[in-house]
């Protein structure tokens, strides 16, 4: 990497074991989201490699990474990223439909009920509160039963109480499903609940 370029993440190496819960913490601009993007194969590093479930993400092309994502990874975003035109149920159905799952509706409905939103299945995303939207997003992430769940500041847009409920839900599902949970957060309490912490400081991994 040449000197003129902006280095967002400095060389660092770490492993995440199956079933672990990992918090990536650090100040704004420390490179948390970039690291998450790399782990998900949404972006590629200019140097180094990312391995996911025994497969190097860096040697795969965009479609190859997309396929791996589809098989292994679920996402929860800070800004929920629900499609505004779709209902809660349709948003949860979407990843299943994309895989051609026949029972998409039943599975999606089951997950909506699991996150406590069965009664709001026909409401559009815009008509839901922040906490509800995030619960829909969690249902959407878990409905495909991912091996890894990546969450980018999942409570960042929520008040403390709602945030806490969301986190409880995430950890509960994590245990129940045996999912590996990687979350980016500012919240030290949340980080404390994780089994592993990656602290970023100006792009450097400090532990």
């Amino acid at each position: 990497m040449n000197d003129a370029a902006l280095t967002i993440l400095h060389p660092s190496s770490f492993d995440i074991v199956r079933g672990a819960s990992v918090a990536i913490v650090g100040a704004s601009g420390s490179g948390k989201s970039t690291l998450l993007g790399l782990l998900a194969g949404l972006d590629t590093p200019s140097q180094g490699a990312v391995w996911l479930a025994g497969q190097s993400l860096t040697v795969l092309d965009e479609d190859g990474r997309a396929q791996l994502r589809g098989e292994l990874i679920g996402f929860v975003f800070q800004s929920f990223q629900l499609l505004p035109n779709l209902t809660a149920l349709e948003n949860v159905m979407l990843p299943l439909e994309l895989r051609g799952v026949k029972q998409a509706k039943q599975q999606a409905l089951a997950w909506l009920e699991r996150v406590g939103l069965g009664h709001r299945q026909h409401h559009r995303a815009q008509q839901l509160s922040g906490g509800e939207q995030q619960r829909v997003a969690i249902a959407r992430a878990f409905v495909v039963q991912p091996a890894v769940l990546l969450a980018d500041e999942p409570t960042g847009n929520l008040d403390a109480e709602t945030g806490a409920r969301i986190i409880d839900l995430l950890f509960e599902l994590n245990r129940e499903q045996g999912t590996t949970l990687v979350l980016v957060t500012h919240d030290s309490q949340l980080a404390a609940r994780c089994s592993q912490r990656l602290i970023l400081d100006a792009g450097r991994l400090t532990c």
Partner: peptide
Amino acid sequence: LLRCFGASQA
């Protein structure tokens, strides 16, 4: 989002 869910370009 579809890309995140694993949809290919095709």
